[in-house]
Amino acid sequence: MNKRLLFLLPLAVFVVLAVYFAIGLTRDPSALPSVLIDQKVPDFELPPIKGHERGLTSEDLKGQVSLVNIFGSWCIACQVEHPFLMKIKGENRVPLYGVDWIEKTPDDGPNWLKKKGDPFTLIGDDPNSKAAIAFGVYGAPETFIIDENGVIRYKQVGPMNDKIWEETIWPIIRELRKRGQKDAR
């Protein structure tokens, strides 16, 4: 009897591996875990984009829960996401900061925003990936949720939409705000 079972062992191993690989195939290889979750926002200081007065620094991200969105006028997924960002701005629920990443010319970002609307409270220009690398960004758009102490709490890879917002982003923001109020008392 035992010997018979031994013959089934390769089949059992195969089934286990097949299940593992099948699960692996359904996962998106470009969605990598961030090592920066629960770490302080890296120190950075970005100049303003052309035509704007203020840039963006890590200091701006302290004091309240905020979102940092890495975008570029060259990035197709950012175009898809843009109307949603405008909607968030319209609802005025949370400050949204922008990092304008590796534009071909200094005019590209400002022109894009002029044409489509500017959803950002402040924007920093990042032509050499200084902030992008500090944030561990590898594609646009990426959005970070920063708590009021300037700690990174969540990273969204790829464009946000209503579903992601309602199911993930907004609950985290609400939770962080609740926690912040408790600490203040």
């Binding site: 990598l32 875990p33 961030s34 090592v35 920066l36 890296p42 690398i133 500090a134 944030f135 561990g136 590898y138």
Partner: peptide, 9 residues
């Protein structure tokens, strides 16, 4: 430094 930003990957 790079690993601290992007992880072991």
């Amino acid at each position: 430094y790079v690993v601290s930003r992007y992880g072991d990957f």
